[in-house]
């Protein structure tokens, strides 16, 4: 049963990832990303990380990809781009190197730690223990990292607002 869930979810993840890379239409690519995120959520549920699964769907599928789609629709880039034009020449070779390197590192890591994985029964838990443990961790041991992340987000938002708001003087310069 567990194997079946694993295979199905992995198939979802891989199919979605393939869709992201291979589809010519940005909206289809975004939908492929949603499929991948769902597959990962299923994996989380199979590992009894229910809260992570829910957050995965709510935040990533529900907010972030919706914003992607929003931008795609507003900017009207929902058609295939001409990929012959290359603004940054090093981009493609670099992408190949980094891609192959990442696969190598992940594969090596998996092979190294496979034998040391903890064996045995998972923790028996009631429905809310997931969220309790996460909260206790986030708000005690890792509270500074947590707060710094929120500061980072605020800085990003404030920076965006400042950069997109043009002063009147510069606007008149644009017009002249």
């Amino acid at each position: 049963m567990e194997l079946l869930v694993f295979v199905l979810a992995s198939a979802m993840v891989i199919a979605g990832a393939g869709g992201v890379i291979l589809s010519r239409n940005p909206v289809h690519a975004a939908l492929g990303l949603v499929l991948t995120l769902f597959g990962v959520a299923v994996h989380f549920v199979a590992l009894e990380a229910h809260f992570l699964a829910a957050v995965q769907v709510i935040v990533y599928a529900g907010a972030i990809v919706v914003l992607f789609l929003f931008v795609i629709m507003l900017l009207g880039v929902d058609r295939a781009e001409n990929i012959e034009v290359e603004p940054l020449k090093v981009q493609r070779p670099l992408a190949i190197v980094i891609g192959v390197g990442t696969i190598g590192i992940v594969a090596a890591a998996v092979l190294r730690v496979r034998s040391t994985l903890a064996q045995g029964e998972p923790l028996q838990s009631d429905g809310d223990s997931n969220i309790r443990q996460l909260a206790a961790d986030l708000f005690s041991d890792r509270v500074f990292a947590f707060e710094l992340t929120s500061v980072l987000l605020i800085v990003a938002v404030a920076g965006t607002v400042v950069m997109t708001r043009r002063q009147r003087a510069s606007r008149e310069d644009d017009r002249s």
Binding site: V27, L31, V34, H50, F51, A53, A54, V55, V57, I58, A61, G62, A63, V66, L69, F70, M73, D78, D126, G127, D128, N130
Partner: peptide, 25 residues
Amino acid sequence: DPPIGILLFLALSSIAVYGIMLAGW
């Protein structure tokens, strides 16, 4: 009565956005 309970409702309502959004697009 899943352990995430009411979060499932939030997740589903965020999926419902896709239906409307993609229908229009």
